[in-house]
Amino acid sequence: MERSQLEKLALLARLNVDDSVFEEVSQGISQVLGLVEQLQAVDTTGVEPMAHPLDALQRLRPDEVTEGNCRDAYQAIAPQTENGLYLVPKVIE
């Protein structure tokens, strides 16, 4: 895998990959991709993709409000909050 391609993936995944481990991670990925390459040889014409092992169907929930306000408890574990808001570096649209 090209360095630039891996950098693109890392940006898409919002993941810094330090130079010190870049080689290791990159090699590992190449090996995994080599491993999965053998899938290409399988003829899967007409096979329905299987997303769930049981081929089950979604159960729907009644439209009821079951959650109250627990903001303080939830924000107690937040990196940074103010006036009930989660703070992040400035969002630029």
């Binding site: 103010e82 006036n83 808001l85 989660y86 703070l87 570096p89 400035k90």
Partner: peptide, 8 residues
């Protein structure tokens, strides 16, 4: 918010 954005 001190140069940050708030998320609701």
């Amino acid at each position: 918010f001190h140069g940050m954005s708030g998320i609701d």
